[in-house]
Amino acid sequence: MRDTMLSQASAEVTALRALAWVVTDQERGMRFLALTGCDAATLRRRAGETDVLGAVLDFLLDDETALRAFADEVDLPAQSVALARFALPGALRR
Results as ranks from 00 to 15, higher is better:
T36F: 08
T65N: 13
T36G: 14
T50W: 03
A40F: 12
A82Y: 10
D62A: 15
F59R: 00
L53G: 02
R46W: 09
G37A: 12
A55V: 01
D75K: 08
D72P: 01
A84W: 02
C38V: 08
D62M: 13
A34C: 02
T65R: 15
V74Y: 05
D75M: 13
P89W: 09
R31V: 06
L53I: 04
A71F: 06
Q26C: 04
L76R: 14
S80Y: 04
L57S: 02
R46H: 11
D62Y: 04
L88H: 04
T42V: 03
E27V: 06
L35N: 09
G90K: 03
G54T: 10
T42W: 03
A84C: 13
A41E: 13
A55H: 00
L88Q: 06
G29E: 01
Q79I: 13
L33R: 04
G37I: 07
L57K: 00
S80N: 03
R44M: 12
R68P: 01
V74P: 01
R46G: 00
F70C: 07
L92G: 13
A34L: 12
A78D: 12
D25E: 12
A55D: 04
D58A: 11
V52G: 00
A78R: 11
A41Y: 01
D58P: 00
R31W: 00
V56I: 03
R85I: 14
T36C: 11
V56G: 00
E73V: 04
M30S: 07
M30D: 11
R28T: 13
D62K: 11
E73L: 08
A40P: 05
V74S: 10
A66R: 03
R46Q: 12
A66I: 02
D72G: 11
G29T: 03
Q26H: 06
L61W: 01
A84G: 11
E73C: 04
F70I: 06
Q26E: 10
A34W: 01
A87D: 11
A91K: 05
F86C: 14
A40H: 05
L60I: 06
A40Y: 03
V81L: 11
P77R: 13
A84M: 09
E49M: 14
L60C: 05
Q79T: 12
T42N: 01
F32L: 15
R68Q: 15
F70G: 01
A47K: 08
A71H: 09
A84K: 01
T36K: 11
L88C: 09
R45P: 02
V81I: 15
R68M: 08
V52K: 00
L43T: 06
L33I: 05
D39R: 07
D62C: 12
A82K: 09
D75S: 14
L76S: 07
A55P: 00
E27K: 07
R68S: 04
Q26N: 05
A78I: 05
R44E: 15
C38E: 07
R68Y: 12
V56E: 00
L92D: 14
G29P: 01
L53T: 02
L43R: 06
G90F: 10
M30C: 02
A78G: 05
L33M: 09
T42D: 03
A47S: 15
S80L: 12
E49I: 02
P77E: 15
A82V: 09
P89Q: 12
A41G: 08
R45A: 15
